[in-house]
Design a protein around this nucleic acid. Structure first.
Lengths: 342, 342
DNA sequence: GTGAAAGCGCTAACAC
DNA sequence: GTGTTAGCGCTTTCAC
């Protein structure tokens, strides 16, 4: 079978089948002009040699031909949210006959740049990315010189590029308004680094809800830069021990929600909680956790849809698609302020 | 800057810099023979044109040169376990200067074949895969003709290929032995499709633990083919309502554990539970859940390590690396059988 | 040091 | 229908 060490080429197949390389090429590409007898001989040779076409050599001659590859950069695949997002995009791409080059930026602009360079050198036909918060300067180049690009989960921020995001501000506002309707007036905000756009937006939503209800802002009740379960837990404990202590918490992402839940577990005073991001088991906890839910799969497939619209030649101004969130009220937000005030 | 529609080539750069293409090539590859003046001119031209080397064209001439790309196929990235695995492999690959082509097989041999073909056509230098359960026939070809390959989370199963797995049988045996030590004798097994190797192994571990304790097997207490939270929940309810009902459950993966927890929530008789796979919040539940933990990140980085050992030329017989599991005892397994017997 | 020519695996264009 | 030639963007080889 494979007598040579290196992978067989089309020439090897041609020789084995006793035909010219063009006949092999035609058979492989399904050009329907080759006589059945030759098709057979070529296919046999292909099978015997274990030949596999070199996809890149084939795109080389047709200058600027599609590589049928797209690049995907998320914050971190190990995060279930981005895993689900990546899965949805891959599904869509595979359907269209595309393969996915993939990387996690880990919120590092440096790593993002490296990945973009590597993908660019591999001539991806399109790019889906969750951009880092570290400035849009290098993205501007990509958008200008690179392949069609769609940003997901973070906004275009002035760049002429398509984007798909969820309505963070509205989601946060809904959750906080719900706590206010429950009678709470001392509501704490626990969020991630405010350099991250989603964190900012959720804080803005929190403030909007307070404003609408005519509740004065209390700076001591706003904590940010919470990046892990452990820091969130610690911050939450401090907050609960302080004065005035909040009767309700709004936690601005799933990691922080989990940290807060840990802090609340052994806290003597019942405290209401609503969090951004649904998470597995939010329903099984006691009490079940009220959350602002949104759908990473919808986010991913919408982004892929927008991207393939572009690669297939649609030429229109950049658009921003905003996906809705949904407030799921469960037990954790039903604690009354008077219980907390004990 | 970019006056032409298509991406600039090396020739464009050479012309712009007023040098030959070879000088450009040498500058790009850092061959230290070019005079500083020319290096400058070339770099300026590169910047002005926004030139990016075509990675594939460059590998073409050096026949069989590394594409610096590896392929990764997991069951499903949307599953946090595989997301974490993928993240660890990507980290390792990026460190080595490799880019990752990625896909989810969704446990479909057909889709696995498509991905392998797409990756092969793109001449990946290595392959990490969680193989589907659908036979190893097409994998045999890949192992024979393809690039260095490592299987993860599933065994080589006779194929001459490296693999990295966790000790499923031992993990299950430990968990069930722990339940037995707690006094339980009617212990149910709830597992996934037994065509999946890990499910089989975990069942084997369950049986081994029973055998060691001299407890007779009871077929009615063994349920398999549980694929979702909902089917697991339903199966568990049926089981609990049956006779003899188990006093303890061993759930063979995280999805099933969660389903069982749902069923147990409104079940009047306290029932012990230990599950395979740790999951977020396993600690926060009430009672906290006893699990067999294992580390997807270690699994991934070990697999990547084994792979790069190969790509860097190590030539030794295929090896199987088995990673240990760890039983984390929490409250859920501490229910006594006499409480259950009420 | 630098560049011209040849060739990597493949396909477009053209001849037969 | 089929094969030949040229050329995609790059690197190797070998002159200068």
């Amino acid at each position: 079978m494979s007598e040579r060490g290196s992978t067989p080429t089309m020439k090897d197949v041609a020789k084995a089948a006793g035909v010219g390389v063009m006949t092999v090429s035609r058979v492989i590409n399904g050009v329907p002009v080759v006589s059945p007898a030759l098709v057979d001989r070529v296919n046999t040779a292909i099978r015997e040699l274990g030949y596999q076409r070199n996809h890149f050599a084939s795109t080389l001659r047709r200058r600027g031909a599609a590589t049928n590859t797209i690049g995907l950069i998320v914050d971190d695949v190990a995060n279930p949210f981005y895993g689900a997002l990546a899965g949805a995009i891959e599904d869509f791409a595979l359907d269209k006959g595309y393969t996915v080059l993939f990387g996690s930026s880990k919120e590092s602009p440096q790593r993002e740049r490296e990945l973009l360079a590597a993908f660019g050198a591999r001539r991806v036909d399109g790019l889906v990315l969750v951009p880092t918060s570290g400035g849009r300067a290098h993205l501007a180049e990509v958008v200008r010189d690179g392949p069609p690009t769609v940003l997901v989960d973070r906004p275009a921020d002035g760049l002429p590029v398509d984007s798909v995001v969820i309505d963070n501000q509205r989601g946060a506002r809904d959750a906080v308004a719900h706590l206010i309707r429950g009678g709470h007036r001392r509501i704490a905000f626990l969020g991630d680094r405010l350099s991250i756009w989603t964190a900012q937006q959720r804080l803005a939503g929190y403030r909007a809800a307070l404003d609408e209800a005519g509740i004065a802002h209390h700076p001591a009740l706003v904590l940010d830069s919470l990046r892990t379960v452990w820091t969130a837990e610690a911050a939450c404990r401090t907050l609960l021990a302080g004065s005035p202590s909040p009767t309700a918490l709004f936690t601005a992402n799933d990691v922080i929600t989990i940290g807060a839940l840990r802090a609340l577990r052994d806290h003597p005073v019942p405290t209401a909680l609503a969090g951004f991001d649904d998470f597995p088991l939010s329903e099984q906890l006691d009490p079940a956790v009220t959350v602002v839910a949104h759908d990473p799969v919808a986010l991913g497939s919408t982004a892929a849809e927008v991207l393939f619209d572009r690669t297939e030649g649609r030429d229109s101004p950049p658009r921003e698609v905003v996906l809705p969130t949904r407030l799921i009220v469960r037990g954790s937000s039903e604690v009354r302020p008077d219980e907390a005030a004990v």
